[in-house]
Computed example of a mutant assay.
Amino acid sequence: MDRLDGIRAFVAVVDSGSFTRAGQRLGISNKLVSKYVAALEGQQGITLLNRTTRALSLTTAGERYLIAARRVLNAVDELDAQARADDGMLSGRLRITAPVSFGEMFVQVLTADFLRDHPGAQVDLRLTDRYVDLAAEGFDLALRIGVLGDSSLIARRIGRTETWAVASPDYLAAHPAPRHPDDLREHRNIRDSNAPVAHRATFVIEGRAISVPLPGQITVNSAQSTRRLALHGEGIAIIPRFIIAEDVAQGRLIRLLEGFPGPQLDIQALSLPQPFVPPRLTAYLDHLRRNLTPALGKEPPRDS
């Protein structure tokens, strides 16, 4: 067995969660995948995977080996990509993660457009609202919205959005509409735990960014769940504009506090520092920057 075959099989098993799905991904039988992984373990003299009848899991040694294995495969892919780049053809796989709502509304469509233009490339798109460790989990790019913490990752702004305070007509029929952000203290607020501080919101008041409390009984970790609760009259919600713009236009939700805008939220693409940026990653980022802004209906970002 070529050691590279074993490494590819091992990473495919981890990423797909089973020998059968790894075989389907690699175009070989699950028995051959198992044989490759076992041979790799024999060569290394370590156990990489705990195998039970119900599940697979990485051993401690396997967790360490996985990080190095991804680097090896990335290096091999880059050698192939550089060779093809001279011919103007993009190739290789990109692993990308994005928030669920944003990914379903924009990223999956833009990714499909990108792949139509570059049939030699492949994209593994994972939509999740949890924080993803790019290095440990082998992702090339993470798309994130809002204020980011300190990080060694390379951040590129690809767009902007804003948040709107909204409520349903039914809720407002039973509760007076807030005229000032401080009035939110007297309302039921539906809070999104993806916000930097779920129980507070920031508004521009007399030219200054002021944080106000958001009392409420419901906190969820999904902008779409927040939207659905607002549609059902459960309270006031503060939601990214792109998620609720159509609801506001159709009158299903009413925009509140228009004279007190919330902060602009940067949409950023994060990647690991690396000496050589794969051509497919550069091309994908350029594609997002060109096409995301028109989709969001905002002016293009002026800086990077």
Score class of each variant (00 low, 15 high):
I7W: 12
S18D: 05
F19Q: 03
A22C: 13
A22V: 15
I28G: 00
S29P: 01
L32W: 13
S34C: 04
L40T: 08
G45Y: 10
I46L: 15
T47H: 07
T52K: 12
A55T: 06
T59P: 04
T60Q: 11
A61R: 07
R64N: 14
Y65R: 04
A69Y: 11
R71S: 08
V72A: 10
A75T: 11
E78D: 10
Q82M: 12
A85L: 15
D87A: 03
G88C: 11
S91R: 09
G92Y: 04
I96K: 15
F102Y: 11
E104V: 08
M105F: 12
F106Y: 01
H118D: 03
H118E: 13
V123R: 07
L125N: 02
L125T: 11
T128P: 00
D133P: 01
L134D: 09
A135M: 13
A136E: 08
A136W: 10
L143W: 09
R156F: 10
I158F: 11
T161E: 06
W164Y: 00
Y171W: 02
L172E: 09
A173N: 07
H175Q: 14
P176K: 15
A177G: 06
P181Y: 15
L184W: 04
P196M: 05
A201G: 10
T202E: 11
T202D: 09
V204D: 02
I205C: 15
I210M: 05
L214K: 12
P215F: 15
T219K: 00
V220S: 10
N221C: 05
A223K: 01
A223T: 05
A223W: 09
Q224N: 15
S225G: 14
L229G: 14
P240L: 02
R241Y: 09
E246A: 06
A249E: 06
Q250D: 09
G251P: 12
R252V: 02
I254R: 01
E258S: 13
A269V: 04
L270M: 03
Q274V: 09
P275F: 12
V277D: 03
V277H: 06
R280A: 10
R280D: 12
L281C: 08
A283H: 13
Y284T: 01
D286Q: 09
H287W: 06
L288D: 04
R289L: 00
R290H: 09
E299N: 02
R302C: 13
S304F: 15
S304N: 03
